[in-house]
C-alpha cells in the first residue's frame, strides 16, 4: 500500500481512460500524458493501462509500508527515496517503510508514479481514471489528500527492463510545435484567421487543466455565419470563442460544445499537451491527414515494441 504523507499540488489516480460513453456525456478522461504512463507501467512490469498516480507541477510524499517496485515517468520533478536521488524512467525497489519524496517540476507539467501491480481502486465504467469535475472514478472521485491510503493491485509481473532506449527518450520529449489537422469549421474561418493561427505564437495561460488549456496570443477573428449548433467535440479540438483566444480541449473535456473549431491537435502530440505549463510558448503546424496518421502509427509502433522502447 501507499500512505499519502503529502499529496502534492494536484495528484489523481489515472489510467488510459474510459472510452465509449460519450452518449451519456462522459468523456474518456485518462492520463494527461498517456505515453509516459504507458512506458512507466511497462518499466515496472504492468499492463500499459494500469492505474498510476498523476502528479501536477508539484509532486507528493509517499510512504510504502510494505515495500514495492516503483518508477517515475514523465517530466523530471526531482525525487528522492529516503534522501537518495531517484532517476526518471528507472525502476526502483522500495524497501518496507521507505518514503519517496517527489518535488517540484524542473520542466513539464506532469510526472507519473507507477507501482508494480498498479493502484487498486474500484473501476467506474471500466476505468480507474479520476473525472474530477463530476467526482467520479479514481480514488473517491477526487485528488489525493494527506492521510489517504491507496491499495496496490497484484497484476504486475517481474520486469527485466532497466532503462529506456535512445529512440524512446526522443519520442517522449514533449513538442512545443503542435502538429494539427483542420478542424470541422476550418473553412468558415477566413484566410486572415487561418494565417494568424498557423503563424502565431501562443502561450498557455494559468487557466490550463485536465479539461482544457486556454491560450493567449494573436486574436483569431470569429468565423462568418454566427452561432454554432452544439455538436460533439474531439480530444485536442482547438476551439475559438468570441474573444479569439483559442482553447484546446483536453482529456477531461466536455463531450459537446458550441464554439467553432479551427483545428485539432494530432493524436501523436496529445502527450505533449499533457506536459504544457502556464506561460509555455507553443506554435501550431498544419499537417495533412496522411502525415497525422503516419505520426500516430509510428508512435504506436514504438510503444508496442519492447525492442524499440528499452535498451
Amino acid at each position: 500500500m501507499i500512505r499519502v504523507i503529502e499529496p502534492g499540488l494536484f495528484t489523481t489516480v489515472q489510467d488510459l481512460g474510459r472510452e465509449g460513453f460519450g452518449a451519456m456525456g462522459v468523456s474518456a478522461s485518462g492520463a494527461a500524458d498517456a505515453v509516459s504512463l504507458r512506458v512507466g507501467n511497462l518499466l515496472v512490469g504492468n499492463h500499459d493501462r494500469a492505474a498510476a498516480l498523476e502528479m501536477t507541477l508539484v509532486g507528493g510524499t509517499f510512504e510504502f509500508p510494505d515495500g514495492d517496485t516503483v518508477v517515475l515517468a514523465g517530466c523530471d520533478f526531482t525525487a528522492t527515496l529516503d534522501g537518495v536521488s531517484v532517476e526518471l524512467w528507472t525502476p526502483v525497489a522500495v524497501r518496507p517503510g521507505q518514503t519517496l519524496r517527489v518535488g517540484a517540476t524542473r520542466a513539464g507539467a506532469r510526472c507519473y508514479l507507477c507501482v508494480r501491480g498498479g493502484i487498486a481502486v474500484p473501476p467506474f465504467l471500466g476505468s480507474t481514471s479520476t473525472h474530477v469535475l463530476s467526482g467520479l472514478g479514481g480514488f473517491a472521485g477526487r485528488a489525493l489528500r494527506k492521510g489517504d491510503v491507496l491499495k496496490i493491485g497484484n497484476l504486475g509481473r517481474r520486469s527485466d527492463f532497466a532503462k529506456l532506449s535512445a529512440r524512446a527518450r526522443q519520442l517522449l520529449v514533449p513538442a512545443r510545435v503542435l502538429r494539427v489537422t483542420p478542424g470541422p469549421q476550418w473553412d468558415r474561418f477566413g484566410e486572415a484567421a487561418q494565417g494568424l493561427f498557423a503563424s502565431g505564437a501562443y502561450h498557455v495561460t494559468e487557466d490550463a487543466n485536465r479539461m482544457g488549456l486556454r491560450l493567449a496570443g494573436p486574436a483569431i477573428p470569429a468565423p462568418a455565419g454566427g452561432e454554432m449548433i452544439s455538436e460533439g467535440v474531439a480530444l485536442g479540438a482547438v476551439q475559438v470563442p468570441e474573444s479569439g483566444m483559442p482553447i484546446i480541449l483536453f482529456v477531461e473535456q466536455q463531450t459537446t460544445g458550441g464554439y467553432p473549431k479551427i483545428a485539432n491537435v494530432t493524436s501523436a502530440d496529445f502527450h505533449s499537451l499533457g506536459q504544457l505549463r502556464p506561460r509555455d510558448e507553443i506554435r501550431f503546424e498544419m499537417v495533412t491527414w496522411e502525415t497525422a496518421r503516419a505520426l500516430f502509427r509510428e508512435q504506436e509502433e514504438v510503444l508496442a515494441s519492447e525492442e524499440l522502447l528499452f535498451a
Partner: peptide, 22 residues
C-alpha cells in the same frame, strides 16, 4: 468505432485510426 458524441443534428464518431481511415 470506439465512441460516439451525439449533438443536435450530428454525431461525432471516434474510430480506431490504426485500423482504418476516414
Amino acid at each position: 468505432v470506439r465512441n460516439v458524441h451525439p449533438g443536435y443534428c450530428s454525431v461525432l464518431v471516434k474510430f480506431d485510426a490504426l485500423a482504418c481511415t476516414h
